[in-house]
């Protein structure tokens, strides 16, 4: 493959409000290659869902893209709207949301929804579309797909519904899948099944996957690379092993240390003081500096550290060095 499937360049999303313009996504850049899973992780309000929605063109008004570009295999898609965008979604981009019921029409059988999507996007006959729909359901692990194709969404369990959504996202053979918290509403055992399924499909089909989640554990298991977001900006971007194992940004490092772990026992958890700033009160300089124990004068002033201006891995003037252990 040449070049990344998805390329996001200096993306800015803004929401005008009566008390000023908010920037839920601020100069974010990343690429996703074919067959790669990029995990986008962050706490609530970090801008991770907003980034995903910007990519698939589902920003709710009044939020809008005000700068930067989004390229799908080199073509800009950030300016598209209406019919062009609708054709792109489904055909070249698939979506998986947290709540499977929002992506399924409760009044149509899953078979109808699958064949409709296939017929709309691919030049095949109705009989062929039905065959493909059954194949898609089989591929996502729905037992007795041939019989279940006539069932309605409410007749499936939560995990099975999410499988149907994945089948729906994949049936038109898109190049990119945006999955927004796909396992958050599911139980642990079902979550493990869905993650395994996503990984398998991504590898077999060479689809690029953007996996948006707040769960570091899910990222560690599923993603190849991970982008950590904080207050709308990228805090850290790198291969998952590196970021999880050797976090460079103090925020990522703190996040890792504050997660209760198997080895920990009853010891006190390390905690990051305070909370993420509200979008109308992002501090000058590095947005993390009020909570950061490494912060120095430079961190409090503009220009703030950005991935691009630092080492491309962590947006920090004083990153944690690899051999320096974070005090536990």
């Amino acid at each position: 493959m040449t070049g990344p499937v998805l390329s996001v360049r200096d993306l800015v999303v803004e929401i005008p409000t009566r008390r000023g313009v908010l920037r839920p996504v601020d100069r974010v850049s990343y690429d996703i290659a074919a067959g790669e899973i990029l995990g986008v992780v962050g706490e609530s309000g970090a801008g991770k869902s907003m980034t995903g929605n910007a990519v698939i063109g589902l920003l709710d008004r009044p939020a809008r893209i005000t700068a930067g570009e989004i390229l799908l295999t080199g073509e800009p898609i950030h300016g598209l709207n209406g019919e062009a965008l609708r054709r792109l979604r489904g055909r070249r981009m698939g979506m998986i949301f947290q709540d499977p019921l929002t992506s399924l029409n409760p009044l149509l059988t899953v078979g109808d929804q699958l064949t409709e999507t296939i017929l709309e996007h691919l030049p095949v006959s109705a009989a062929e579309a039905r065959k493909r729909a059954i194949a898609a359901l089989e591929e996502v692990g729905i037992p007795a797909a041939r019989q279940r194709i006539g069932s309605y969404p409410h007749e499936f369990s939560g995990g099975m519904r999410q499988r149907v959504v994945i089948a729906l996202a994949l049936c038109a053979e898109p190049e990119l899948i945006v999955a927004d918290e796909p396992t958050t509403a599911l139980d642990v055992s079902v979550q493990a099944q869905i993650i395994a399924l996503l990984k398998r499909l991504c590898r077999e089909r060479g689809v690029a996957v953007m996996l948006v989640t707040h769960d570091m554990g899910v990222i560690a298991e599923a993603a190849d690379r991970v982008a950590v977001m904080y207050a709308g900006r990228l805090a850290e971007l790198g291969p998952v092993r590196e970021v999880v194992g050797n976090a460079r940004h103090p925020y990522t490092a703190g996040l890792m240390a504050s997660t209760p772990s198997a080895s920990g026992g009853h010891r006190r958890l390390r905690q990051i003081p305070g909370a993420m700033p509200r979008l109308d009160a992002v501090p000058d300089g590095c947005p993390f500096h009020p909570r950061c124990e490494r912060a120095e004068a430079r961190c409090r002033q503009a220009p703030e550290p950005m991935l691009q201006t630092c080492d491309g891995r962590a947006a920090c003037w004083f990153p944690v060095v690899a051999d320096e252990e974070v005090p536990a």
Binding site: T17, G47, K48, R278, D280
Partner: peptide
């Protein structure tokens, strides 16, 4: 999608 609910505070 809590990212959408941007709360404002005086």
């Amino acid at each position: 999608m809590s990212d959408h609910q941007v709360e404002l505070q005086t």
